[in-house]
Design a protein around this nucleic acid. Sequence first.
DNA 1: TCAATGGGCATACGAAGCGTATGTTAATAG
DNA 2: CTATTAACATACGCTTCGTATGCCCATTGA
Lengths: 217, 217
Amino acid sequence: MHRPRKEMIAETRAKLIGAARQAFGTLGYAEASMDDFTASAGLTRGALYHHFGDKKGLLQAVIAEIDAEMSARLKVVSAKADNLWQGFVDECTAYIEMALEPEIQRIVLRDGPAVLGDPSQWPSQSACIRSMTESLQRLSDEGTILAVDPETAARLVSGASLHAAQWIANSDDPEATSKKAVKAFKVLLEGLLNRTGRLHQPDQQSSMQPEIDQLPA
Amino acid sequence: MHRPRKEMIAETRAKLIGAARQAFGTLGYAEASMDDFTASAGLTRGALYHHFGDKKGLLQAVIAEIDAEMSARLKVVSAKADNLWQGFVDECTAYIEMALEPEIQRIVLRDGPAVLGDPSQWPSQSACIRSMTESLQRLSDEGTILAVDPETAARLVSGASLHAAQWIANSDDPEATSKKAVKAFKVLLEGLLNRTGRLHQPDQQSSMQPEIDQLPA
DNA sequence: TCAATGGGCATACGAAGCGTATGTTAATAG
DNA sequence: CTATTAACATACGCTTCGTATGCCCATTGA
């Protein structure tokens, strides 16, 4: 039998990533002991070093997994919108909502950059950015937004989103904070809109409101 | 004599902060050995623990010092502008330029959040945000920008700025990247402008251009 | 079927690094 | 003048990481 062998190996990798993800997400990268969370997976550090080289390598794998999930979620959101602008807006709100999750905040937004360096250089991070970039590219082709470099705009918007999410999540009153953040975010985003012609221009006033007004605490 | 005593103590603190700032800025927080950089200041860890409690406490002190310097620089920039909008724009560009400095990037933007948590909760970080918030408040009073919560807008703008700066600093071609970033940043910022009345409305097209087009590499 | 090879993982060891507990000195207070 | 306290240094133990080594099982080729 060839399969059981390969499956055991894949399972070991998955168990290590899962245990590390749990530990990194709750304790943080620096405080997570490799002895502890490998033991919680029924393994030792030997397996870890064999598969991932070192602790940083495992963090990379964990982040790649999370980032793939985030990217998939964004694609789903933008795909089921009525028009492109709405899809982009939904994508932004989904991005903020994801950034509110403690695991993503801790691993991807806080420890990741400190240990692995600037996220814009990660091979995985490009997935989320690319998704937003493609949306903006289509909006630009369509004439809905002004002619700006889509990737650049995506990075600025994601930067604002991520900071907003961290601010919201750590504020005293997350609900009130999110409302203020969304309102201001909407105003900023409208800077992108093409106001000279009115071709394909969607309803601007109501477009940002849905769903995000009541965010999870 | 009372003074020499107090001065020696202050000097010890300053030497520790200086040595730590150097080590954190070049090696990074995690890789900086307390034994090493205290020795480089002619001291031992004993002094460190006495004055700052632990390694995190020292990082806090270092960040507080850097943040104070940043805040002072921002105030100078915004004070010498001709009008409020221009002052705000200059402040943003100065913010981006500061975020390009390796020491600030490493200590304040990368290691700081990982070790001390979300920057919006730091007592010191409020200084820079407050500066931008005040600028936006005045612009709002003046009618130049739309009625958005000034602090919220300041946080969004600073978030976009910081991410842009990190992207620029780590890109293959920082100069080209900065040009694209500034252009898109300008478009976004114009979302804040009040376009209904034309009272106090400054020249929008040229206002973002100065100085930042040629950023330091 | 039976070596033999190699990959998957555990164990053992050494080296730092951190935090604390304990000195030691010098200045200030009474 | 003594006693106390602040400002550091020294010493110790604990944890953690990385590597070197060893074991075992599965695949492979004859």
